[in-house]
Design a binder for these strands. Structure first.
Length: 290
RNA sequence: GCCCAGAUAGCUCAGUUGGUAGAGCAACGGACUGAAAAUCCGUGUGUCCCUAGUUCGAUUCUUGGUCUGGGCA
């Protein structure tokens, strides 16, 4: 039992903004320490989202086993709870094999769900989440949340209708789950050694722009066309991914390809900024400037 | 060469009946607890083309330039 305490189970956690080079960095680390990569990326989980997510190829993996990639059907919305449950099983298996888990993540919430025990529970909700709150104004929705879960309302801006609805849906689906407070408990599964890649902002944007152009040159438009033809709706989480929603709009005749490409670049800049904001909060992280 | 129009934020533009200016996009900062590549909050960063006038005061009006469009030759 002692052997299972977190102190004896260290996992490396590589975080940073998109296009910073996390994949290469994590693979190199894994090769040097006998590790296996656990992706913490909300879009690489989907089968078929390859070109627009910079999903690592077999060559890029360099023989290192990768987990939590291609584990979800893009027709169905995945969730952080499903991710956390499955990823933790992967991490346990890696430890059982005597290897080191190298978590490699760009999705802040997904990383949080591993390094904190958030009390998410197993599986769940995608199908229970759907209750409608018909014809309510955002003010009415917010008032309802304040009444039913003041603590949750405390942390949600009244304009953030999507979050308000989600909080209400969660109350409807599983009111007994997880009190809001007390969920930032460091995980007992392992001790994280966090490495944060911190690229120069301007250089990062240049790299992002070049990478977006490369996505297009490598056939992103065709990939999106194929997904749409397969019945992956534009409202799905997968099709909300950067590069996917913009190309879908282009294919729908709503803008030119050039406009779509520009929007993808800007959206990716914004994403990188948000990721940096999120990961800057990880105190004690080893910062690698690149 | 002549005639028109324009010149204001990184970009596209609005505006000031004369009191040194504001939108969208970009950029920057932040939040984030079961959709998170989502969603939301906040910040204006400026020789108002130059010049000489009129004026207490000019980005605004007037003179003369420069540049950029468009038209006529």
């Amino acid at each position: 039992m002692m052997a299972e305490s977190a102190e004896h189970r260290e996992a490396i956690v590589v975080v940073g903004p998109t296009a910073a080079g996390k994949t290469d960095y994590a693979v190199a680390l894994a090769l040097s320490c006998g590790g296996e990569v656990v992706s913490a990326d909300s879009m690489q989980v989907y089968v078929g989202l390859d070109k627009g997510t910079a999903k690592p190829s077999a060559e890029e993996m360099r023989g290192v086993p990768h987990h939590m990639i291609d584990v979800a059907d893009p027709h169905e919305d995945y969730s952080v709870a499903q991710f956390a449950a499955a990823a933790r099983r992967c991490i346990d298996d890696i430890f059982a094999r005597g290897k080191v888990p190298v978590v490699c993540g760009g999705s802040g919430l997904y990383v949080n769900a591993l390094i904190f025990d958030m009390g998410l529970g197993e599986d769940i909700t995608a199908q229970r989440r759907m209750r409608q709150h018909p014809a309510s104004t955002s003010d009415e929705l917010y008032a309802e949340l304040v009444r039913r879960d003041p603590l949750a309302a405390w942390g949600i801006h009244p304009n953030n209708v999507k979050r308000i609805r989600r909080a209400l849906d969660r109350l409807d689906a599983a009111p007994e789950l997880r009190p809001f407070s007390g969920s930032f408990v460091l995980t007992r599964q392992f001790t994280p050694r966090i490495i944060r890649l911190a690229p120069d902002r301007e250089a990062l944007y240049r790299r992002i722009d070049a990478r977006v152009d490369a996505f297009i040159a490598n056939g992103l438009v065709g990939e999106v066309r194929g997904l749409l033809a397969d019945g992956v709706g534009r409202g799905t989480t997968a099709m909300q991914g950067i590069g996917y929603k913009e190309i879908a709009a282009y294919l729908g005749g709503e803008c030119t390809q050039g406009e779509a490409v520009t929007r993808i670049k800007y959206a990716t800049h914004h994403l990188a900024k948000r990721q940096e904001t999120w990961f800057r909060r990880y105190e004690g992280a080893e910062i690698v400037r690149i």
